[in-house]
């Protein structure tokens, strides 16, 4: 490693640390300053949630640009404009890094998210996920109903079917939740594929373990999967769910497993 590469690496550790602090303080500032102000100005809870989601998009866009300009990471979207007109649709993505949700949401004016239990206890994030009206991944009975209500309103719902971040080198599996929701609410799915080279902000590494070269996040918005063929060709919904899940695996994770 040359001297300039070493300096660049140390700089990226610093920049990444700064971004973490910024993310935390941003979350708290939204929770305790911005969102309470909305509570007074917007009585209607649905309107308020949409407003919060819009603010999240703007903040994340700024945050992503901060990460890029500070040099912590670089990122690029392919076909992001496809997301613009998506309505009443699930967005499913693979989950290689900590900031996948941040990247995708920065391009979605409206986006509900299915959020795992741990985040509802995270002090920096719980206020935000609550204000945005995100859906807790908790009771299976209520989950489908919650999701179907949002989708009927024309909302877009982001899910990472892996359930948590991918562990590099380990064969990933997809939980069937996303496929279940798609089949049972008869909703099409938009596929988003994220590739990070070299890997960064993965599950088993700490944020300061930055790679030798600047990580590049390539976010590719792919075509929609139509749900009807899966339902029509299956004798029962549970079988449609299994077929769809296999297909999701092929488009989301199979390319990854081949290259590694």
């Amino acid at each position: 490693m040359s001297l300039s590469e070493k300096i660049n690496k140390i700089w990226r550790i610093f920049a990444t640390g700064f971004c973490f602090v910024l993310f935390g303080t941003g979350g708290l500032a939204l929770t305790f300053i911005v969102f309470p102000l909305l509570t007074f100005s917007l009585e209607n809870s649905k309107k308020r949630e949409l407003k919060v989601q819009k603010i999240i998009q703007r903040s994340f866009y700024l945050f992503c640009e901060t990460m890029r300009i500070s040099g912590a990471i670089d990122y690029k979207f392919a076909d992001a404009e496809k997301l613009k007109n998506d309505q009443n649709c699930l967005i499913v993505a693979n989950h290689p890094s900590l900031i996948d949700y941040v990247l995708i949401t920065s391009r979605l004016g409206q986006c509900d998210c299915l959020v795992k239990q741990a985040i509802w206890h995270n002090p920096f994030m719980k206020g935000v996920v609550k204000s945005a009206g995100y859906i807790p991944n908790k009771d299976p009975e209520n989950l489908l109903e919650d999701c179907s209500k949002r989708l009927e309103d024309g909302n877009v719902l982001l899910i990472f079917p892996e359930g948590t971040r991918t562990t590099p080198g380990k064969k990933s599996t997809l939980q069937r939740g996303a496929a279940q929701i798609a089949v049972k609410t008869e909703t099409d799915l938009r596929i988003v594929h994220i590739k990070v080279t070299p890997s960064f902000l993965t599950k088993e590494k700490k944020w300061y373990q930055v790679p030798d070269s600047r990580p590049f996040f390539h976010v590719e918005v792919k075509d929609k999967i139509s749900i009807q063929p899966f339902i029509e060709e299956s004798s029962s919904p549970s079988i449609a769910v299994r077929k769809l899940n296999k297909h999701l695996y092929d488009v989301l994770l199979a390319p990854e497993q081949k290259t590694e």
Binding site: P140, L143, L144, Q175, Q180, S238
Partner: peptide, 8 residues
Amino acid sequence: LDSLDAVD
């Protein structure tokens, strides 16, 4: 099976 299958 998963929890949603159990509901089915």
